[in-house]
Amino acid sequence: DNIDEARLTVRALAAEQITNDIYWVKDGQEARDFLLAKGQYTSRDSRESPKLILLDLELPNITGLELVKIIKSNPDTQTIPVVVLTSYSENQYLHECYRLGVNSYIVKPVSFQQFLKMAKKIGYYWMSINQTA
């Protein structure tokens, strides 16, 4: 939901020459609609699932935790890797996210340079090395 962090992440992925299409949505409701091809995304081919979802927990309309429940309970989206990027370092969020089926939980670094390094590593691993279903 933070446009500056979204732009930084896209920039970091581009620096790693990640050539996949990148879609940024502004809140949990839009993310749900995008993934399930509903609302403004009804024309999107729902069979073309994202290779990766980078997800903040603190989202307007539908929270990140609620979105994880939706993603992991739907047969069409449950195998998409979900990487949580959050400022929440409390164990309750970490445990709940893994219980719901996220693939990775990363607490966002505060510094700009650390954030760029982290985003590059995420992109390289999940888009270049990891094999998805």
Score class of each variant (00 low, 15 high):
residue 126 W to I: 07
residue 49 S to A: 14
residue 108 K to Y: 02
residue 29 Q to M: 12
residue 130 N to D: 13
residue 113 Q to D: 11
residue 10 V to D: 02
residue 108 K to D: 01
residue 103 N to R: 00
residue 119 A to I: 05
residue 109 P to K: 00
residue 54 L to M: 03
residue 23 Y to Q: 10
residue 81 P to T: 00
residue 51 K to A: 13
residue 44 R to A: 15
residue 40 Q to V: 14
residue 88 Y to I: 03
residue 91 N to E: 13
residue 117 K to A: 13
residue 11 R to C: 00
residue 98 Y to A: 09
residue 107 V to D: 00
residue 73 S to H: 11
residue 32 R to D: 10
residue 67 L to R: 05
residue 103 N to C: 01
residue 117 K to F: 05
residue 83 V to T: 06
residue 85 L to A: 02
residue 125 Y to M: 00
residue 74 N to R: 00
residue 65 L to H: 10
residue 130 N to P: 03
residue 16 E to R: 13
residue 65 L to A: 06
residue 20 N to W: 01
residue 112 F to L: 10
residue 55 L to M: 05
residue 68 V to I: 15
residue 89 S to Y: 12
residue 44 R to W: 15
residue 26 K to I: 15
residue 38 K to H: 11
residue 111 S to T: 12
residue 125 Y to H: 07
residue 122 I to W: 05
residue 128 S to H: 13
residue 97 C to D: 08
residue 63 T to W: 05
residue 110 V to R: 05
residue 27 D to P: 12
residue 13 L to P: 05
residue 1 D to G: 15
residue 106 I to W: 01
residue 89 S to A: 15
residue 90 E to L: 11
residue 11 R to V: 03
residue 90 E to F: 12
residue 8 L to A: 01
residue 42 T to L: 15
residue 3 I to C: 06
residue 33 D to H: 15
residue 40 Q to K: 10
residue 104 S to K: 06
residue 41 Y to D: 09
residue 39 G to F: 09
residue 107 V to P: 06
residue 1 D to E: 11
residue 48 E to R: 14
residue 45 D to V: 07
residue 74 N to K: 00
residue 69 K to A: 14
residue 128 S to M: 13
residue 114 Q to M: 11
residue 104 S to Q: 13
residue 90 E to A: 14
residue 112 F to P: 04
residue 79 T to W: 02
residue 66 E to N: 05
residue 98 Y to P: 11
residue 38 K to G: 07
residue 27 D to I: 15
residue 68 V to Y: 12
residue 2 N to S: 08
residue 105 Y to K: 09
residue 103 N to W: 05
residue 33 D to M: 15
residue 8 L to T: 03
residue 6 A to L: 01
residue 111 S to K: 06
residue 4 D to N: 15
residue 129 I to R: 08
residue 84 V to T: 08
residue 90 E to G: 11
residue 11 R to P: 04
residue 35 L to N: 03
residue 25 V to E: 06
residue 52 L to W: 01
residue 111 S to V: 05
residue 19 T to Q: 12
residue 112 F to N: 04
residue 84 V to D: 08
residue 96 E to V: 08
residue 109 P to D: 02
